[in-house]
Nucleic acid binder design. Structure first.
Length: 871
RNA sequence: CAGGGUGUAGCUCAAGGGUAGAGCACUCGAUUUAGGAUCGAGUGGUUGAGGGUUCGAAUCCCUCCUCCCUUGCCA
């Protein structure tokens, strides 16, 4: 069955040979067996409970290092464990294959993005395969494949029809040298990352997904994501950022129009000292036309870029328009109107009123431009006569004062009262706002999914007919000049309008790559379906039971996926809201960093420890500065290659180490010593099974009776370990599970060969060890299983069950304290009566010595745990 | 300044009121021509600091400190 004859192993006590686990041979062999038997290929099976394990799929950037594979290992442990527990487990893998690095590689080394991407995929697939991860490779997908993105194009057309996709102008970071749009991360100090040219803000027509349509539901449903980490839920809540306030108008003195503002603090209206509009506000643009100084100011603001972080950090600057706004509650009260750089057109109405006493930014602004600061909220313990605002605004709770009809009201009541008044005056109304904005999906890039629309001068925007999908990317593109290659292409964008037949132009924007990752988990359910996915398969497998990935995707990817499920539901594709029932965010893998005397980074293999203990370079022995341990990254060169570990110690060693040292949610420190330690442990287990101290009875031999107490204790250890490891795996405590198994192996190794029943207990222990290790070190475990004389595959064997009767000991060891200090221990039958325990404790020589003959004032007995004698 | 996390052996982590443990590292011994591997034994702790509750605190409460992360600073 397995290519090599199975050999029943009986053990040969006294055998002196010291075999070493042949890692290469075993790992290759068992992987081949699983592959040949298609062990991990699954189909829908209504008779079995399903379990969908998914790790966030990678961008095929080149090759993997050990830092990349921690989450795949965790997912694999879960997949293999659940499989052993009888679940029908879907565990797929694919490639998030569109994206900018492929285009950068094309520019840098003249290789086509597709070739570069597929080459990387081939390398990385082989790397994952050699890690022995139990994927159903039949379901592998690459998002850059037309058979993937054609369905995305169809979804877009349906979204368009449903009003969930639309086009409007928005601001982008424009690199005037590269003639291209930059992502916020590509803007460094206001300059393009590649060209170094100052970035401009430009208005460009862009495609958007109407994620705000579901803002309330996306926020509400977070409460029910009870298997998500609390902090991710919090981050999403903050990102959606619901706020309750009022939208209302300030009339402009001497003009027919007015300014609409949004505020969450209408209660502080009597503290208003200015109105400010965004530099992109229509009013600012109108005034700038006749006012060169204002135009220059607006221009200056646009240089800042669109990143929120940059805007936040910048100094608050304003430009007095000379206009006056009339206070909504008092026609005789006017405040100046400014154009201010910290007011964003994209949020609220693009205009605010400033209450310096109640908002730090407004206060900074007021101090800079010498505007009045009127306190209107008195803190609970404050004194109206003396309370004053210094350099810090008061944003806390309190009672309104200096506020006419709002005086004496608590903040919350005053808000409602102010809104009522605004509504009564016809000046405005209460409104709920969200920080969440619609998702801009247009990218002026080649290596992405083409947006399937055609621009016709007569018909406007015309969807590409479904029968013409997919709109394929052209292969013959060049990257020798700046800008979007699709736009430069001589023929690709010229098409006949599907509606009127006249010459028209294809959309040359492509999708943000977050679009592909927003539904790939659905495609995995039926990866070769001619449609986007098979509804029955999706209904069977979804939602993902356990999703595993980095916390860096806590907001965008996860929120976009949640949006996609809702949008697809509305368009009739599916009928469910949440894609990921459980989420786990794993910690990073870290490693020391090394620098040479010039400050250049060094790879770990370029340094060594000299005889004196100093760290020096391998070449030339120059002194090396050892930096702190940081997340493994190519830029700092603190990476450990996967090949190096797998060739030397094998995939199981890498896997076990990635699981063992730290709790999975925390960062893991990769050390050579730790990897060697794991390798020694693997060999220790191998020897325990292949060269046992005591001959093992054959498979299924009856339990000998009686068992020696040492054998009995070892058997209890076996069952306690099964119980504990099971609980640890269920609770994602992989490091504890590993520690338990190590203790089991130590315990079994200590079992004296002479003890009655030792061989039988040792077999129980070795079989349990193999089974418990199987999710973590699957190749080793399969080899052990065979060495133990089994003729079935361990991977097809059910998870072991602990015998409840063996989980408690008959004899317990009590700690005996005198005045809280440990003086002795006492072995006694479990659940002995209190007075029996007390009497036994008081007669212990160590206790008599410690009490110096004084009578016990009190004896505390905690059953089966401790006795404390108080004198 | 805020919010969250963290602090236990040299290192990475257990123990969540009841005997402070594991792995790695280190020391010594055995084995070996030697090294490595292996086996055995051992060193190593005022549980970040201080105070409180308790018969008993790493664990519960209060104060302070360290480092890390998320950023809040979106009206």
């Amino acid at each position: 069955m397995f290519g090599a004859p199975l050999r029943a192993h009986t053990g040969e006590p006294g055998r002196k040979s010291m075999s070493r686990y042949n890692v290469r041979e075993n790992e290759d062999r068992w992987r081949a067996v699983w592959a040949e038997r298609r062990t991990f290929a699954v189909t829908e099976d209504p008779a079995k409970p399903k379990y969908y394990v998914l790790e966030m799929f990678p961008y095929p950037s080149g090759r993997l290092h050990v830092g990349h594979v921690r989450n795949y290992t965790m997912g694999d442990v879960l997949a293999r464990y659940k499989r052993a527990r009888g679940f029908n487990v879907l565990h797929p893998m694919g490639w998030d294959a569109f994206g900018l690095p492929a285009e950068n590689a094309a520019i840098a080394s003249k290789v086509h993005p597709a070739a570069w991407t597929y080459d990387n995929i081939a390398v990385m697939r082989e790397q994952l395969r050699r890690m022995g991860i139990a994927y159903d490779w039949d379901r592998e997908i690459a998002t850059c494949h037309p058979e993937y993105y054609r369905h995305e194009q169809k979804m877009f057309l349906d979204f368009l029809e449903a009003g969930l996709a639309y086009r409007r102008e928005s601001w982008v970071n424009w690199d005037p040298v590269e003639n291209t749009v930059l992502a916020n991360e590509q803007v460094i100090d206001g300059k393009g990352w590649r060209s170094g040219a100052p970035v401009e803000r430009r208005r460009l027509s862009q495609w958007f997904f109407r994620i705000t349509e579901f803002a309330d539901d996306l926020l509400d449903a977070i409460k029910r994501l009870d298997r998500w980490p609390e902090r991710v839920r919090l981050m999403q809540e903050n990102w959606i950022g619901r706020s309750e306030g009022a939208r209302f108008r300030f009339r402009l003195a001497g003009r027919p129009d007015d300014i609409e503002v949004y505020s969450t603090r209408p209660d502080t209206l009597f503290g208003a000292s200015f109105v400010a509009v965004s530099p992109n506000h229509p009013l600012a643009e109108e005034l700038a036309r006749d006012n060169p100084a204002l135009a220059a100011f607006v221009q200056e603001c646009s240089r800042l870029g669109t990143s929120e972080a940059v805007i936040e950090a910048a100094e608050k600057l304003g430009f007095d328009t000379g206009l006056k706004a009339v206070h909504p509650f008092d026609p005789d009260w006017q405040v100046p109107v400014y154009v201010a750089n910290f007011v964003l057109m994209e949020y609220g109405t693009g205009a605010i009123f400033g209450c310096p006493s109640g908002d730090q930014r407004d206060l900074d602004f007021a101090r800079k431009y010498d505007l009045p600061v009127i306190p209107v909220v008195l803190p609970p313990e404050g004194d109206a006569a003396t309370f004053a605002i210094g350099e810090e605004a008061y944003t806390g709770d309190g009672t309104l004062y200096n506020s006419r009809f709002l005086d004496g009201l608590p903040v919350e009541t005053a808000k409602r009262r102010a809104i009522e008044e605004l509504e009564r005056l016809g000046a405005g109304a209460g409104e709920v706002q969200f920080r969440l904005r619609d998702w801009g999906v247009s990218r002026q890039r080649y290596w992405g999914c083409p947006i399937p629309v055609i621009h016709c001068t007569d018909c406007g925007i015309v969807p590409v007919p479904e029968s013409d999908l997919p709109v394929r990317l052209p292969d013959d593109v060049t990257f020798d000049r700046p800008g979007n290659p699709l736009d430069h292409h001589p023929t690709w964008k010229h098409v006949a309008c599907p509606s009127c037949g006249k010459p028209a132009r294809r959309e040359t924007d492509t999708f943000d790559t977050f679009v592909e990752s927003s539904w790939y988990f659905l495609r995995f359910c039926s990866a070769r379906d001619s449609g986007a996915f098979d509804r029955k398969a999706v209904d069977y497998w979804m939602p993902v039971d356990q999703y595993i990935g980095g916390v860096e995707h806590a907001v965008l990817h996860l929120l976009y996926s949640r949006f996609f499920m809702r949008a697809l539901s509305r368009c009739g594709y599916v009928d469910m809201g949440e894609p990921f029932a459980g989420l786990f965010t794993q910690g990073m893998v870290c490693h020391e960093t090394y620098r040479d005397p010039e400050g250049g980074w060094l790879f770990p293999e370029e340094v060594r420890r000299s005889d004196g203990g100093a760290v020096v370079t391998v070449e030339g022995g120059r002194p090396v500065t050892v930096g702190r341990s940081e997340k493994m990254s190519k830029s700092r060169k603190n990476v450990v290659g996967l090949e190096a570990i797998v060739e030397g110690y094998g995939a199981d060693t890498a896997r076990l180490f990635l699981l063992s040292d730290s709790p999975p949610e925390r960062d893991l420190e990769w050390t050579d010593g730790g990897a060697e330690g794991v390798w020694r442990f693997i060999n220790r287990v191998w020897r325990l099974v292949t060269e046992p101290e005591t001959a093992l009875p054959p498979v299924g031999a009856p339990r000998p009776d009686p068992l020696d107490p040492a054998a009995d204790a070892a058997l209890r250890l076996v069952h306690k370990t099964i119980q504990a490891v099971t609980e640890d795996l269920e609770g994602f405590r992989f490091n504890k599970a590993v520690a338990r198994i190590r203790e089991l192996v130590n315990g079994l190794a200590d079992l004296p060969a002479s003890a009655a029943g030792a061989g039988w207990v040792l077999r129980q222990g070795c079989e349990a060890a193999a089974q418990l290790l199987a999710p973590m070190t699957p190749h080793l475990a399969e080899a052990l299983w065979q060495e133990l004389g089994r003729d079935t595959l361990l991977v097809d064997t059910a998870w072991p069950e602990a015998d409840a009767a063996l989980l408690v000991d008959d004899v317990v060891t009590l700690a005996v304290q005198v005045n809280g200090k440990l003086r002795a221990t006492l072995d006694i039958a479990r659940d002995s009566a209190r007075d029996v325990v007390e009497a036994a404790a008081l007669t212990l020589p160590a206790v008599i010595r410690a009490t110096e003959g004084k009578p016990a004032r009190k004896v505390v007995v905690v059953p089966n745990r401790i006795v404390n004698v108080v004198v």
